[in-house]
């Protein structure tokens, strides 16, 4: 959105006074409107968004790996096509999100470098391995399902480019979740071995999926400010509760057991009570001690390093084309 020009002679009279730009920002937030790239924004707001959007982008990119692992082995051609399309969608989501982050003054290269140097975070869930085909179902049903609960409110995030990217992403994620559900349904309707494969996979992914909503509200340092800025709309625990409420009837349709013996309907509160989440495991994986942290980063780094000469070639070619078209240089003599 456009900001009306601010007269230059208006300056804050004291350190405590709110500048006109800041007032405008506050007004936009109060009116639940969008902040756009050229609008003034507090540095902390910008930093929070860069952190959140780039982490989200990295999660999409690293998240391609556990499923990419099964493209070559998908058990039917239909499943192979669907899986390819899905993993490819994730690359697309990564692209939208990197673009949204770029509007905040960071480059894709900087973000990529931080990722492969191990300095940037991504969703911990992708540090778990995908040893069986049923994991393609669980990742869709549980991981994408949790992602949707997290992300739908982000469509209304105060930062315009992020919110708009999330609209597109949520449409596709919703489709992915159905695919995952359908993979599990097919397995649960199949042979004993297939049913066991599905249940084992749900057992492995259920708790990590619940951890995707982040630490409990009383242990989530950044949440309050993000909610004030209309980036975050619901607390971690609220979203987790909503997710479990959504899963229970779906698990019944599937015929899988959710691996929480304490899970039961609380008539009084109108929500499901659930067992204790193992936050030690969450923090362990977050700190790099999960089953596949090293492998995920190594593969990303390998792809990046192995592709360097290709990117350099594309850049060099583009420069030569630009030079040739402006007539400033004819540098294609090497091949003439």
């Amino acid at each position: 959105m456009t900001i009306p020009p601010v007269p230059y002679d208006i300056a804050p009279t004291s350190a405590s006074a709110v500048s006109p730009e800041e007032q405008q920002f506050n007004d936009l937030i109060a009116a639940d409107s969008r902040i756009e790239p050229r609008d003034w924004m507090p540095e902390a707001y910008r930093k929070t968004l860069v952190r959140q959007i780039s982490q989200h982008a990295h999660s999409e990119i690293i998240g391609m790996q556990p499923e990419g692992n099964w493209i070559t082995r998908a058990p039917s051609l239909k499943r192979k096509a669907i899986l390819m399309a899905k993993v490819q969608d994730e690359a697309g989501h990564g692209l939208y999100l990197y673009s949204a982050a770029q509007t905040l003054g960071i480059t894709r290269d900087e973000m990529t470098d931080a990722l492969i140097a191990g300095k940037a975070r991504y969703s911990s869930i992708f540090n778990y391995p995908s040893p069986t085909w049923a994991d393609m179902g669980s990742i869709g049903w549980l991981v994408d399902g949790a992602a949707i609960c997290n992300q739908v409110p982000l469509c209304r995030a105060s930062y315009g480019p992020y919110g708009r990217a999330m609209v597109r992403i949520c449409k596709e994620e919703s489709f992915h979740q159905r695919q995952g559900f359908e993979i599990l349904l097919e397995l649960m309707n199949g042979t004993d071995e297939q049913r066991a494969m599905a249940q084992d996979s749900v057992n492995r992914w259920y708790w990590p999926a619940l951890q995707m909503f982040g630490p409990p509200d009383d242990d989530s340092p950044n949440s309050a400010q993000s909610m004030k800025w209309n980036i975050k709309r619901f607390s971690n625990d609220e979203l987790r509760q909503r997710f479990v409420g959504m899963l229970v009837p779906q698990a019944e349709v599937l015929g899988v057991t959710l691996p929480d013996p304490d899970l039961r309907w609380n008539e009084e509160k109108g929500v499901y009570d659930m067992g204790e989440i193992d936050w030690t495991e969450f923090h362990e994986v977050l700190q790099g001690r999960g089953p596949a942290n090293a492998r995920r980063l190594q593969r990303r780094r390998d792809a990046h390093e192995n592709g360097r000469w290709v990117r350099e070639a594309a850049a060099a070619y583009a420069r030569k084309q630009a030079d040739a078209s402006t007539g400033t240089a004819l540098t294609q003599t090497a091949v003439a």
């Binding site: 990119i61 391609m64 070559t72 192979k80 290709v310």
Partner: peptide
């Protein structure tokens, strides 16, 4: 299909 998640840039994964 092997290239998806291993391409030189995201645009090529796609």
């Amino acid at each position: 299909g092997w290239w998806i998640s291993r391409a030189p840039e995201l645009e090529e994964d796609i």
